[in-house]
Design a protein around this nucleic acid. Sequence first.
RNA 1: GCCGAGAUGGCGGAACUGGGAGACGCGGCGGACUCAAAAUCCGCAGUGCUGAAAGGCGCGUGGGGGUUCAACUCCCCCUCUCGGCACCA
Length: 815
Amino acid sequence: MQLDHNKIEKKWQDYWKKRGLFQTAEDPKKKFYNLVMFAYPSGDIHVGHCKNYVIGDVYARYMMRRGYDVLHPFGWDAFGLPAENQAIKIGTHPEKWTLENIQTSDESLKLLGISYDWDREVITCLPDYYKWTQWMFLLLYKRGLAYKKEAYVNWCPGCQTVLANEQVIDGICYRSNCRATIEKRKLNQWFFKITEYAERLLAGLDELDAWPENVKVMQRNWIGKSTGCDIVFKVVGHDISFRVFTTRPDTIFGVTFMSVAPEHPAIDELVKGTSFETAVRRYAQEATKKTERERIEKTKDGVATGCYAINPVNGEKVPIFVADYVLPEYGSGVVMGVPAHDARDFQFARKYDLPIRVVINPPDGQLSVDSMKDAYEDPGVMVDSGEFTGLDTAAGAKKVSAFLARKNVGGPSVNYRLKDWLISRQRYWGAPIPIIYCQKCGMVPVPENDLPVLLPKQVTDFVPKGRSPLAAVEDFINTTCPNCGGKAERDADTMDTFVCSSWYFLRYLDAHNDKEFCARDKADRWLPIDQYIGGGSEHATGHLIYFRFFTKVLHDAGFISVDEPAVHLFNLGMVLKNGEVMSKSKGNAVPARQFIDKHGADVARLTILFAAPPEREMEWSDEGVTGAERFMQRMYRLVTENREVIKEERPSRISKESEELYIKINQTIAKVTIDLESFKYNTAIAALWELMNALYGSSVRDEVFGYGIYAMIHMLSPFVPHLADELWSSVDGEGSLVEQTWLEYDIRYAESKAKIIVIQINGRVRSHIEVTGGISEEEVKEKALGDERIVRHLEGKSIRKTIYVPDKIFNIVAA
RNA sequence: GCCGAGAUGGCGGAACUGGGAGACGCGGCGGACUCAAAAUCCGCAGUGCUGAAAGGCGCGUGGGGGUUCAACUCCCCCUCUCGGCACCA
């Protein structure tokens, strides 16, 4: 009797669809929003992609059986560079390529039997979606959170567009097919003011108890809060003062120079018309041309400006340098140089023979400048610091801050590493930025009624030339001003696709609404996401910050009541093949469709689920497939060969010889239930496998045995739903198992009656005794000491003491 | 450099709150069925020494110390792997 997976799977998928089992309840009594991160449509899906969907599906189906009204949607993050690059390569339109990919992938996904509510599918590149992406832009614009500024930005020469900070990894483009070294360019670009939410994004992490710690740590690092103090240095002979940030105000008496970033706008004025001008200009120019990496890798250097600044605590004059180790984007782009207590300043001072002044001593010693090989950066005690001498770092920092504040030359201050999110892109395949430039009125947002600003389809030249291909589309660019009706031009840039993905979870709630991105009552009904199943930790400092940011903005604007999007987050490990991440471009992808065709969706599901715990990386191997296939066949046979004894009632009478089997059944129900709730699907399946082995090995074919098979069928349903429903119907079960309440175990038979108590001597296992029912410590001791092997081992030794762990271990300490 | 996660048989991986390490699977070996093979079913198996065998004794969760009657689990030090951050003042 062979299992015909193709036939069975088709049958049940059709049935689920016909019954509308996965259509979301309009009026949920017990809602559960189960969300799997949506995907980029890159051709067809492979088994590596399937992991996310399968794991999300197991959870969704389990929650359905727990009586929840589950919302389990899917969609496509459909804008983005690969479509455009493909268009350039083979001449097809990005939209065509993308929509075809989506269609193919949808078909494959449906073959997997995932319980999606397909009616809510969202596709971000379609106008009814990106209309609302543009609406989001306008919302941020109105709230002062979207702005345009000229700044040094990350330019990817490969992609011919600017990138957000989050998309630059080690100075390299984040796109795996690009990996070009990022350059700095001064350009006028759109930013979202995520920094305004830095503190709330940071503080909110403390409330996210059910997020993995590593993701929270990564976000904290990314936001990079430091507390310190601002200090104002006046420049001698100029009407300029620098407000510098430091985390170590206690080292203020050790300042011997200042360094200004080469990008700093004040440089011009400092050196104009002086003998330093040429050298400084040249240095600044060269420095700005360098990539971030080049700047990091070279030794610290700089150039004198001939100007001096005044230390506000002691009135000392210190020279001002331009140095490219100073970052223009952090703090004010100016730092005070304290060589004795900062490694970078130390290097710089040694190079230019600047004075090094020790103002902090270690708690238990004394530093001397001559013998110092490195800066002393740890906390210590202030010395040579006027009235502050003798204070330790913590107290000193506080006192100095307060002193500066009192004198109105600085004071306590906080800085974040997080930078504003650069969202404009010089590429075609994205949502157009809904802004119009009027010669008379200036920058004018597109009125909401005019949305969407449609992406023109007649474009044929997608080759990036440093500006958006849209700039060349006259029909698109030329428009009239919504204000005055005069001649005007549209913004030619499109938005970062991370903008599209920052709010997609809201669109699922009301996917067909053409009046709002989502009706308020629907948002209130379904938010927050109860379980977010994330693709991997690479999203920790990108998408997972952005969508928190959007949630907070929409909350502040009164559109949703939550201010964190997701309660639980579960991050999955990737699927590898031959030690590398499975992907089409690496050529190691196992196409899902092909695999399902040959082995079936349930085998694919089982292979994925059993191979490794979901959060860990898993290596795809054919050996895993063999096991899964065997499991399916054995289960199928178990049912077909014993159909007449399968019973859905708990056994009324438990005979002596089937008692242990009944206990095993109940233990399995308990174990599988716990594991389902905590995403330990691999051990849940191991438990099912054990029960199956026990059923195969059972010598009785009574009602306990029959109930065991029944329970197996039940428990299989989240993991291998097609097989489970097929078996369910073959034993006259009604409908689909997703409609059946999850099994409860019989608490009276949850613990094995037969116990083995291990007898140890000095912690080594020497023997064991078997007991059924209760036994007292005295009895155990008596039996243990009477045990032949124990007696032999105790020869010539005396018993010091004994330890008894009830029903488990009896340890004799002897010497 | 800093932060986080991890290292367990030939392999993927189990092990509650400190209580028999190696569940379950793959592969392997032996047996049954078969003319034979596949499939299937049953059994064996961490490793060393010892024993004809049943068994016995030792060693074993990256390495080294420690706490404990008892350590994969707790503490200290070290090595390696993976991920993140890193000129952030």
